[in-house]
């Protein structure tokens, strides 16, 4: 991709990250910020910056990067501009896991993220099994349809689980589903970073294969790629990356769908560039959205998933206009 566009995306990410550290429910002066960052005294400002805002910005960057990469890989592999991890059962499965954890055990500690991650993985496996049973193994169209069906089933399961649950349980589950970085801590950051290095690395490793898969199954076969096996592989890794982000921050919608289009609009056409650009743009979008979610109605926080959509839609509309 053009170097200028890459530099512009990195600058946007840095600006978003700086805002993420500078702004929040508490108002800190530039001097307090500087002391907290550079000198590390033991005051409240340092605690806010180092234990709340920095992990929050870092987690937001990782969530956005993961969703952006996952969406770019899935859109190319499934040859569908609407493909994104949340359309393909990952979010539904994660939500079922999280809601069951909230309903059955109450929301505490690591239980919800672990249950969400497990739910997402189960959903992904079910999608693969359903596509295989339909005879398509890694057929892109069948993976897409199986994902939509599993997602619909998951939504029904969530409604059933919440139908007779107490009001505070419904509220907790609903908040989780709207996405939030409010509980970010360094443990979460380290866990997600480890999973993303693994999953994101695998997707980058497969970037050329994704370029070839984007030409269609027969063309891929003529270029030395087993299309079914390769599609399944990309689907699995992209879903793993998305599942990891969902377990860390709940459902942060729209990023996986819109960010790859923005990356391509910035000139990233081949998938190695598109994956990198989507990671940077996704990180910037989630951090910026989180800043807005924190400060728009201070001290109340807005649901992150809604804000990403509100910020993302205008970018997407501009891109659509260019495509038309």
């Amino acid at each position: 991709m053009p170097t200028r566009a890459l530099v512009a995306l990195i600058v946007l990410l840095l600006i978003a990250a700086a805002c993420g550290v500078a702004f929040g429910s508490a108002t800190l002066t530039p001097a307090e910020l500087w002391r907290a960052l550079a000198q590390g005294d033991t005051g409240t400002a340092t605690s806010i910056v180092r234990d709340v805002r920095l992990p929050r910005v870092a987690l937001g960057a990782l969530v956005g990067a993961g969703l952006g990469m996952s969406g770019a890989a899935l859109q190319g592999t499934l040859r569908n501009p609407l493909a994104e991890p949340y359309l393909l059962g990952v979010s539904g499965g994660a939500a079922v896991g999280a809601v069951l954890a909230v309903v059955l055990a109450g929301a505490h500690g690591l239980l919800v993220p672990v249950a969400a991650f497990a739910g997402a993985l189960v959903a992904v496996l079910v999608v693969l099994v359903v596509a295989r049973a339909a005879g398509g193994r890694g057929d892109a169209r069948l993976l897409l349809m199986a994902g939509v069906v599993v997602g619909a089933f998951a939504n029904a399961a969530i409604m059933l689980a919440l139908a007779n649950a107490p009001a505070n349980t419904v509220r907790g589950a609903t908040w989780w589903m709207m996405g939030s970085l409010a509980d970010a801590d360094w443990f979460q950051v380290r866990s997600l970073a480890a999973l993303l290095v693994l999953g994101g690395g695998a997707l980058l490793w497969m970037a050329r294969e994704i370029d070839v898969l984007a030409l269609g199954a027969e063309a891929a076969a003529s270029l030395g790629v087993e299309p079914d096996a390769a599609s399944r592989r990309v689907f699995l890794w992209a879903s793993l990356v998305a599942a990891a982000t969902v377990s860390a921050a709940g459902l942060v919608g729209f990023v996986g769908l819109v960010v790859p289009h923005l990356a391509r609009g910035a000139g990233a056409r081949a998938h190695r560039g598109a994956l990198v650009a989507s990671a940077i743009a996704g990180a910037a979008l989630v951090i910026a959205s989180d800043v807005l979610a924190r400060v728009a109605l201070r001290p109340t926080e807005l649901p992150l998933g809604a804000v990403t959509a509100i910020i993302g839609v205008p970018f997407f509309l501009v891109r659509l206009r260019k495509l038309a």
């Binding site: 859109q75 190319g76 040859r79 569908n80 501009p81 490793w205 497969m206 970037a207 050329r208 294969e209 370029d211 070839v212 984007a214 030409l215 269609g216 027969e218 063309a219 003529s222 270029l223 030395g224 790629v225 391509r264 056409r269 081949a270």
Partner: peptide, 27 residues
């Protein structure tokens, strides 16, 4: 060269032709 083929997302012609080198490349 199969009968039909359409890239899901546009590429520059040079990038597209370079995909012909895929079988000779490792990641």
């Amino acid at each position: 060269v199969t009968q039909r083929e359409e890239p899901a997302f546009p590429l520059a012609v040079r990038e597209y032709v370079a995909l012909g080198r895929h079988p000779h490349q490792t990641p």
